[in-house]
């Protein structure tokens, strides 16, 4: 890419696969699981995190030389909380139904460990542009897992995608339902989110043997 040097491009590409925040670094699981029963909620959550992380990394990176290290956690929390309040208010104003579905999990972006983790590990030590890329990359890595989980849970659980009945109508018995297919309501229940993540980890680590952990 002409726009980005190779090193900068890796900041975005690494978290998408081999250094994924959710499946490898195990950060930010909390919100990832609770809201993924629908694809739409997953996408909105990913975009919110993308905004908060991109902006937050920039702000922290700009302030990195003037934050006393003793109180940096509180400074970071205040920066994130401010950004999250913006997201929350925007959601409440323009997508009220969705903000009801996400409920407290928008607020919980504040304690999303990815954000604090990236502030600590990257933004406090690097320049603004690189921090921005790092934030975007990690948020995208988080988002991609959310979208995958949301896709499978909504498709298998309610037979829809973004609300469209892609598999046919379960009541009128059209499409797949005509030949006796049934929705697996279990996919909508919260435990299945954990199991789907487990399976994603399984697939990912089978493809890349370097990621396998010691027992």
């Amino acid at each position: 890419m002409a726009l980005l040097s190779k090193k900068d491009a890796n900041l975005i590409l690494d978290p998408l696969s081999d250094n994924n925040p959710i499946t490898i670094q195990v950060l930010g699981i909390c919100s990832a699981l609770a809201i993924t029963a629908e694809l739409k909620a997953s996408i909105v959550m990913s975009v919110s995190v993308l905004f908060v992380m991109g902006m937050g990394n920039v702000v922290i990176s700009l302030m990195r030389n003037i934050i006393p290290s003793k109180i940096r956690i509180i400074v970071q929390l205040v920066v994130v909380a401010t950004l999250v309040i913006i997201v929350d208010q925007v959601l409440k104003a323009f997508a009220y139904e969705l903000s009801k579905t996400l409920s407290v999990f928008v607020g919980l972006i504040i304690t999303n460990c990815i954000i604090m983790g990236r502030f600590e590990a990257f933004a406090l030590a690097n320049g603004t542009w690189r921090s921005f890329l790092d934030g975007i990359g990690n948020a995208a890595g988080y988002g991609i897992i959310l979208v995958i989980i949301g896709f499978f849970r909504e498709l298998l659980g309610s037979g829809t995608l973004l609300g469209y009945k892609v598999l046919g109508d379960p009541i009128a018995k059209t499409g797949l339902y005509a030949i006796g297919y049934e929705n697996n309501g279990f996919m909508l229940l919260s435990p299945m989110a954990l199991i789907v993540v487990g399976l994603i980890i399984w697939v990912q680590r089978s493809r890349n043997k370097d990621l396998i952990e010691e027992n």
Binding site: L189, A193, L194, G198, I201, L211
Partner: peptide, 24 residues
């Protein structure tokens, strides 16, 4: 003897899922 790619994190997720089903 857990399958190698599931070791550590993967199996923990799946066990947690099973426990959550139990708690339901």
């Amino acid at each position: 003897n857990v399958p190698a790619p599931l070791r550590g994190l993967g199996i923990t997720f799946i066990i947690t899922g099973l426990m959550a089903i139990g708690f339901m």
